[in-house]
Design a binder for these strands. Structure first.
Lengths: 146, 146
DNA sequence: GCTATATCGTCAAGTAGATTGACTATCAGG
DNA sequence: CCTGATAGTCAATCTACTTGACGATATAGC
């Protein structure tokens, strides 16, 4: 029987954005786990969108993720030992390594797209297509303004 | 000269929401630091909105934050040693403690409202009032649907 | 009252996801 | 070739949590 907070309401954009993002991630993770991807853990998978089908240089992933190279490496190593990614030496640069999906990783990727599509569809249904599109447009504006 | 990611685009609701939330928090934190609140650090302050002016029982904060009581305690202890919060024994419950703002904390709170208002105003100006209100409405719908 | 059980806060230790620092190997430009 | 920058690695640390164990107090049932 806890009183509602009235003094310092959480009903402001910042909190709402954060909460909506949290809900999305939760639903997505649930979908992934439901499809059998127990390896899927929030942050460990954050590197996945940056790996291209042809493979991506580790340094490029670092540059795009905005994390330290050590942090990115840890994520990659984890996904490597989970059998999702593998790394080959870069033929054009003796220092570099190319990060690629394994076959398992490709399958996981296909499932992650399904999961994403499903969560998006649910949200679209809940909000209505116009509101959903409006949301996307507004969010893009926020992201590009920075 | 990094290629743009085209295979696995990040332009979907989940990522956009997360990114917008991140931008908001960043701006807010910047404002707080600009006002001299160096103590302000993202997570440590997450407990602040749950503390009412009259004081709030620690257990109630725990219940509302959705974290373990130990985690909440750590946050409170940190803010206590930063001089923002203080704790008194609950007169109605020998086990309990009441969390309150110190004078410093009240001042910080007033500034945090200013910061929030400023960031919101900026966002409203950037997006236009209709888009901003639409955003809020949509986000509330997402939050309540869960 | 008395006892069983639950709740409140605390202490301690462990984990996940990041950080910084130090190092080796390699590359690219004078 | 040196010189300096870049790519990746290893190790230690930090922060924000977690779970487990515990003592003190409160509450319900008898």
């Amino acid at each position: 029987m806890v009183n509602k907070i009235d003094d310092f309401p959480l009903d402001h954009v910042g909190w709402r954005l954060w909460d909506a993002a949290r809900i999305w991630k939760e639903k997505f993770a649930d979908e992934m786990v439901a499809m059998g991807h127990d390896w899927y853990r929030e942050a460990r998978s954050s590197v996945v969108p940056y790996v291209k089908k042809e493979g991506t240089r580790q340094a490029d992933i670092v540059a795009q993720m905005g994390l330290s190279k050590q942090a990115v490496q840890q994520l990659i190593v984890d996904l490597e030992s989970s059998g999702i990614l593998r790394r080959d030496p870069d033929p054009n640069d003796g220092r570099g390594k190319i990060v690629r999906f394994t076959e398992t990783g490709m399958a996981a990727l296909r499932d992650s797209r399904k999961a994403k599509a499903k969560v998006e569809a649910e949200m679209k249904a809940e909000l209505g297509p116009e509101a959903f599109d409006g949301l996307m447009e507004t969010l893009r504006k926020i992201g590009s303004g920075d």
